[in-house]
């Protein structure tokens, strides 16, 4: 083997692999092993249950919707924070990370206090027939909350590094501001937007703490998949919990791989440059 110039390869490799092996790989192996224990019949039975299906659908479809909302608002907020100068901008910029720094249990009870039917905002919405807490919209709201920083923070550096000359070139060629945005700026942002989208999605799919307070956890209606796992554990149905966990894990990996494909395709202009 070639001599390595910098020291510490063996030490850091040994330590990192041992640590990863014990903390991450061994437990995940236990998950796969336990999940495989229920067999194909057990798996079909589990996935055939309407309650499981409803929970999985809420977790994944809800997370998708939340990530889409985040992509929109995230782009808006990132744009305003990068391009506009207004008093308090630094404060708002720092505030973007709040959902990331605030423990999820705290976010959960705070959102519930706001959007419950008798809550700060909820009491104004109830007369209009709008219910957020203890219903699917509440689940999605919590998912938007926890995923929000990802889109903004991935977009900001890219937006800041955008070459203004290109926009001026577009305008000098006769494009309107909207045309400039949709034809020149947005296409460049799409790969980054997808990165933020994927991060927000991954976060929302597995989210537990902030969701369970506001969701009301009504089976078939506002119960998320992670909660179902917890319930199976509490009933000592380890195999069922493991199987459901495995399904969630594989589904979110499949989703992330799909997004990274999409991302590579949308960023193909960047690869050609190299």
């Amino acid at each position: 083997m070639r001599r390595r110039i910098l020291p510490g390869f063996g030490l850091s490799l040994g330590y990192a692999l041992t640590y990863l092996g014990l903390i991450v790989l061994l437990p995940l192996a236990a998950l796969a092993w336990k999940a495989s224990g229920i067999g194909i019949g057990g798996m079909l039975h589990l996935l055939g249950s309407p309650r499981t299906l409803a929970a999985l659908r809420l977790s994944f479809a809800g997370a998708m919707l939340a990530a889409v909302i985040n992509a929109g608002f995230g782009l808006l907020v990132a744009w305003v924070l990068v391009r506009y100068r207004f008093p308090g901008r630094r404060l708002f910029d720092a505030l973007v990370d709040l959902p990331f720094a605030l423990p999820t249990a705290v976010a959960g009870i705070a959102l519930t206090a706001l959007y419950a039917p008798n809550g700060w905002l909820g009491r104004w919405l109830t007369p209009w027939g709008i219910q957020i807490a203890y219903a699917p919209p509440g689940v999605i709201l919590a998912m938007v909350f926890v995923g929000f920083p990802f889109v903004v923070r991935t977009l900001q550096p890219v937006l800041a590094s955008l070459d203004r000359d290109v926009e001026e070139a577009a305008e000098s060629l006769g494009a309107s501001h909207l045309q400039t945005f949709f034809r020149v700026i947005l296409p460049v942002l799409v790969p980054t937007l997808l990165t933020g989208f994927a991060l927000a999605l991954a976060r929302a799919v597995g989210e537990y703490g902030s969701v369970i307070f506001i969701a009301g956890n009504i089976p078939m209606r506002s119960e998320i998949a992670p909660l179902l796992i917890v319930e199976k554990l509490e009933e000592f149905d380890y195999a069922g919990a493991a199987a459901l966990g495995m399904v969630m894990l594989l589904a979110s990996f499949a989703l992330l791989i799909l997004i990274s494909r999409l991302q590579r395709w949308s960023g193909r202009w960047a690869e050609l440059q190299r």
């Binding site: 995940l28 236990a30 998950l31 966990g245």
Partner: peptide
């Protein structure tokens, strides 16, 4: 998911 992170240790 955080729940799965806990679950694996229970398993």
């Amino acid at each position: 998911s955080p729940v799965i992170s806990g679950l694996v240790y229970v398993l």
